[in-house]
Protein backbone atom coordinates (compact mmCIF):
# COMPACT_ATOMS: atom_id res chain seq x y z
CA UNK A 1 0.00 0.00 0.00
CA UNK A 2 1.00 3.62 -0.18
CA UNK A 3 2.02 5.95 -2.92
CA UNK A 4 3.94 4.34 -5.72
CA UNK A 5 6.86 6.70 -5.49
CA UNK A 6 10.09 4.85 -6.20
CA UNK A 7 12.03 6.96 -3.75
CA UNK A 8 9.68 6.47 -0.83
CA UNK A 9 10.33 4.14 2.08
CA UNK A 10 8.24 2.85 4.96
CA UNK A 11 9.67 3.44 8.43
CA UNK A 12 8.11 1.91 11.52
CA UNK A 13 8.71 3.94 14.68
CA UNK A 14 8.08 2.12 17.95
CA UNK A 15 6.61 4.20 20.74
CA UNK A 16 9.71 3.63 22.84
CA UNK A 17 9.64 7.01 24.64
CA UNK A 18 6.92 9.27 26.07
CA UNK A 19 7.28 11.66 23.12
CA UNK A 20 7.64 11.18 19.38
CA UNK A 21 10.24 13.92 19.27
CA UNK A 22 10.03 15.40 15.79
CA UNK A 23 9.35 18.90 14.57
CA UNK A 24 7.65 19.31 11.22
CA UNK A 25 7.11 22.20 8.86
CA UNK A 26 4.90 22.42 5.81
CA UNK A 27 1.47 21.44 4.65
CA UNK A 28 -0.98 22.33 1.92
CA UNK A 29 -0.98 25.99 0.86
CA UNK A 30 2.56 26.63 2.07
CA UNK A 31 5.92 26.65 0.30
CA UNK A 32 6.47 23.12 1.57
CA UNK A 33 3.29 21.28 0.44
CA UNK A 34 3.97 18.09 2.42
CA UNK A 35 5.25 18.00 6.01
CA UNK A 36 9.02 17.83 6.28
CA UNK A 37 10.98 16.82 9.36
CA UNK A 38 13.11 19.74 10.54
CA UNK A 39 14.23 18.45 13.95
CA UNK A 40 14.61 15.09 15.65
CA UNK A 41 14.92 15.38 19.41
CA UNK A 42 17.37 13.18 21.22
CA UNK A 43 15.63 10.65 23.45
CA UNK A 44 12.32 10.71 21.58
CA UNK A 45 10.77 7.68 19.91
CA UNK A 46 11.84 8.90 16.45
CA UNK A 47 15.45 9.33 17.58
CA UNK A 48 15.45 5.91 19.22
CA UNK A 49 14.19 4.38 15.98
CA UNK A 50 17.27 5.63 14.17
CA UNK A 51 15.77 5.60 10.69
CA UNK A 52 13.82 8.87 10.47
CA UNK A 53 16.04 11.72 9.34
CA UNK A 54 15.86 15.50 9.19
CA UNK A 55 14.77 16.33 5.65
CA UNK A 56 12.44 13.38 5.24
CA UNK A 57 9.12 14.41 3.74
CA UNK A 58 6.16 12.54 5.26
CA UNK A 59 3.81 11.14 2.63
CA UNK A 60 1.62 8.92 4.82
CA UNK A 61 1.03 8.16 8.50
CA UNK A 62 -0.35 4.67 9.21
CA UNK A 63 -1.60 4.61 5.62
CA UNK A 64 -3.28 8.02 5.78
CA UNK A 65 -2.01 10.28 3.00
CA UNK A 66 -0.98 13.81 3.96
CA UNK A 67 -1.16 15.32 0.49
CA UNK A 68 -3.63 18.21 0.48
CA UNK A 69 -3.70 18.42 4.29
CA UNK A 70 -2.87 21.74 5.86
CA UNK A 71 -0.13 21.98 8.47
CA UNK A 72 -2.32 21.79 11.56
CA UNK A 73 -4.32 18.87 10.17
CA UNK A 74 -1.14 16.96 9.31
CA UNK A 75 0.26 17.66 12.79
CA UNK A 76 -3.02 16.48 14.33
CA UNK A 77 -2.91 13.23 12.34
CA UNK A 78 0.62 12.50 13.55
CA UNK A 79 -0.22 13.42 17.15
CA UNK A 80 -3.32 11.18 17.09
CA UNK A 81 -1.28 8.30 15.69
CA UNK A 82 1.17 8.67 18.58
CA UNK A 83 -1.65 8.77 21.16
CA UNK A 84 -3.46 5.76 19.71
CA UNK A 85 -3.19 3.06 22.36
CA UNK A 86 -4.09 0.18 20.06
CA UNK A 87 -0.76 0.46 18.24
CA UNK A 88 2.68 0.55 19.82
CA UNK A 89 4.22 1.91 16.62
CA UNK A 90 3.61 4.44 13.85
CA UNK A 91 4.29 3.65 10.21
CA UNK A 92 5.66 6.62 8.27
CA UNK A 93 5.92 6.57 4.49
CA UNK A 94 8.67 9.09 3.74
CA UNK A 95 10.72 10.35 0.86
CA UNK A 96 13.92 12.33 0.81
CA UNK A 97 12.83 14.30 -2.23
CA UNK A 98 10.29 17.07 -2.62
Amino acid sequence: PGLLEPTSCLIRVSKSAPTLGIAIEGGANTRQPLPRIVTIQRGGSAHNCGKLKVGHVILEVNGTGLRGKEHREAARIIAEAFKLKEKDYIDFLVTEFN
Binding site: E25, T30, R31
Partner: peptide
Protein backbone atom coordinates in the same frame (compact mmCIF):
# COMPACT_ATOMS: atom_id res chain seq x y z
CA UNK B 1 8.09 34.59 -10.82
CA UNK B 2 6.88 31.09 -10.09
CA UNK B 3 3.57 30.91 -8.33
CA UNK B 4 4.95 28.83 -5.49
CA UNK B 5 7.23 31.65 -4.44
CA UNK B 6 4.13 33.53 -3.37
CA UNK B 7 3.03 30.78 -1.00
CA UNK B 8 3.65 31.56 2.66
CA UNK B 9 6.18 29.71 4.80
CA UNK B 10 4.79 27.11 7.13
CA UNK B 11 4.68 27.19 10.86
CA UNK B 12 6.68 24.54 12.70
CA UNK B 13 5.09 22.12 15.14
CA UNK B 14 6.90 19.97 17.68
CA UNK B 15 5.35 16.55 18.10
Amino acid sequence: REKRLTLPPSEITLL
